[in-house]
Design a protein around this nucleic acid. Structure first.
Lengths: 173, 173
DNA sequence: GATATTTGATATGGTCAATAACAATTATCA
DNA sequence: TGATAATTGTTATTGACCATATCAAATATC
C-alpha cells in the first residue's frame, strides 16, 4: 500500500509537464544544499551510526538481536561470572535500564542470572547453551553480512583505520 | 531452567579474583575484557558518537544549542525560504517531530515561520537577525572548541579521511 | 466543481536514558 | 559485637526522541 502510493506520486510528478513549473526540465523540487553540515563531525557521525545500526538489524533479523543485545552476549561470553553492575557499566548502560534488557535475554533462554554464593546480593551472568549457539550464529552473520560490507566499501586498510580512529575518539575525546 | 554445572562453578569462583586481591591499599575489581566488541563497527561508532555529542553540548553550553538545533540553523541559513517539510526531511526529521523543534527555535527568536504567498499552506523558514548572530557565534565555538579537538587528536589529514569515510557510510551503506 | 494531495499541526505510543527510592545483603568501624 | 553505611538488583517515574495515524486548511488534479 505504501509502495503503490509512492509509485503513484512519482508517476504523477514525473508525468505532468503542463503545470507552471519554475523550471520545465526539473520536475522534482531541488534538493537543499547541505553546506557546512557535510563537514560537521557530529552530523556525519550520527548519520553513519544510524545507517550502520539499520543495516545491523537487517542482518540480524533472523536472530532478532539488537546491537545492544549483541554487545551484552559478546561481553558475557568473554567475561563469564561477572554481575549485572559490572556488565552494564562496561557497556555504558545504567543498572536500572539493564534489568529489562536481561529479562528479555533470559526469557529467550540466551543468558541466565545466577545468585552468587560469595555475595548473595549479586547475580552472576552466564550464557546458556542456546545463548552460546545463537551468539556463534550471530557472529557469523555480522562478519559475513555486516562487517564485510565495510571492506567492500572502504577496503581493508581504511576499515581498520576507521575503527582505530573511532576508538580513539570514544576513549580520548 | 537448565543451568550447566560449569555455571555453578563460575558462581563460586566469581568472587575469588577480587577477594583474594583485597590488600590494605586499594581493591579495584578488574575491568572487563571488551574482546571482539572493540572491533565491532556499530559499537565503536555509537560510543564515538555519544562522546562527540557530549562534547558538542559542553562547547555550546553558553548558546544552549543541541546538535540537532545547530543543524537546523545551518541548513536554514544555507537554504533560506524553504518550508518545514523540506528542511525536516533533509535532516531526517519527521514533520510532526519538527514542529516542537521549530516552536523552540522560534520562541527564542532564532528563526521565523513566514506564511508563503505562493502556497499558503506552507511556512517559509528564515533566520532572524538574532538567529544569524547566534549561528555565527556557534560556528566559531564549534570550530575552535569542538572540531579543533579532532585535529589535536587525529591530525588534519586523518580528520579529513575520517569525515570522508563516515560520509561514504552515511550515503552508501 | 468534485476529489485527491500536500502542509503544518495534534495526539499518541514506543523505545531509551536518567534519577530517586526500596529491600536484601554485605561492609565498616566505634 | 552491634549500629551505621554502602552495594546490588529492582521498581517507579520522568523526559527526550522516534514513529504512526489523523485533522483542517490550502492546493492540485481531472
Amino acid at each position: 500500500m505504501t509502495v503503490s502510493k509512492t509509485a503513484e506520486k512519482i508517476a504523477e510528478k514525473s508525468g505532468d509537464a503542463t503545470k507552471g513549473r519554475k523550471d520545465a526540465t526539473e520536475a522534482q523540487p531541488e534538493a537543499l544544499q547541505l553546506g557546512e553540515l557535510s563537514e560537521q563531525l557530529g552530523y556525519v557521525l550520527k548519520r553513519a551510526q544510524l545507517k550502520v545500526f539499520e543495516n545491523f538489524l537487517r542482518c540480524m533479523a533472523s536472530l532478532q538481536l539488537t546491537p545492544a543485545q549483541f554487545s551484552v552476549l559478546l561481553l558475557v561470553e568473554k567475561n563469564p561470572g561477572r554481575n549485572q553492575t559490572e556488565v552494564a557499566s562496561t557497556l555504558g548502560i545504567l543498572r536500572p535500564n539493564f534489568v529489562a534488557m536481561l529479562d528479555n535475554l533470559e526469557s529467550r533462554d540466551l543468558c541466565a542470572r545466577i545468585r552468587s554464593t560469595n555475595d548473595r546480593r549479586s547475580h552472576i551472568l552466564v550464557l546458556t547453551d542456546k545463548g552460546k549457539a545463537v551468539l556463534t550464529r550471530a557472529k557469523k552473520l555480522v562478519a559475513t553480512k555486516h562487517e564485510a560490507r565495510l571492506n567492500d566499501l572502504l577496503g581493508q586498510a581504511n576499515r581498520e583505520a576507521l575503527i582505530g580512529m573511532l576508538s580513539k575518539i570514544a576513549n580520548e575525546f
